[in-house]
Amino acid sequence: MTRSREWLHAWLLLLPACVLLVLFTHFPAVANLWHSFYSTPKGARPARFIGLDNYRALVDDPIFWQALQNNALYALGTIPLSIALALLMAVWVNGRIRGKGFLRLAFFTPTVLPMIAVANIWLFFYTPEYGLIEQVTKGLGFASHNWLGSKSTALACLMVVAVWKEAGFFMIFYVAALQAMSPQLAEAAAIEGASRWYFFRRVTFPLLMPTTLFVLVNAIINAFRLVDHVVVMTRGGPDNATSLLLYYIYEIGFRFWDPAYAAALTMVLLVVLGAVAIAQFVFLERRTHYQ
């Protein structure tokens, strides 16, 4: 095969995937930037160039800052907790505990269910008066509390659901990594008389670092990408206490029909995800150096 024929073949193989990728990933990302400099057409008035006005509105928009802050809190609250739980679950499932199959099933099941369905179930949990949590707290003699209806607890309620759903998913990556670890390490540590905790801290955990990085990146993306439970459980309320960035974009774009402002908001989300991508690239580079 001549070289130019080979090039042609390669590009023909790539063509169908490239067309769709460009149409639904690269083009919209660029078009989004473009549209964020225009106004939303109203009635007979077409969209016109307004420069940075959408971004000025964004800086002055308290709900945007609230959503961003909520999202940061949500990420900080859910990610470390679900990773720690995932690691604990993996060590258990990989160890010598009775009923490992059952444990793995219990931890992993929330992962295969749709967020919208589990959100419905948890909604029932949190219901004032009737919900399971109310029944328990009432039984213990505490005052009634509207978990999803009050600003101080609503976001925490969503975070619990996210941790419950994600921990089991991250667990399996740790299980895979633990299974790939060399048994000689444990043998050497046993000869040295190392305690279990010491072995975990000094050997297991550092060796799991690549897995932790991988899980961390996925967790960050998910914290900014998945808002199904917000739609089902709180619709961003009460008083925007649970509005996450993507949910706010959805609200502006498809409930208030202001795509121009939604485009400016989307740019913020893209910058966040881009920063994660660059950080991951830098870290992965470093990792390959000492391998």
Partner: peptide, 14 residues
């Protein structure tokens, strides 16, 4: 990184 999930506004336009 940038999944179709987050480009909802532009993808709806397309």
């Amino acid at each position: 990184m940038i999944m179709p999930d987050v480009l909802i506004v532009e993808n709806y336009r397309t």
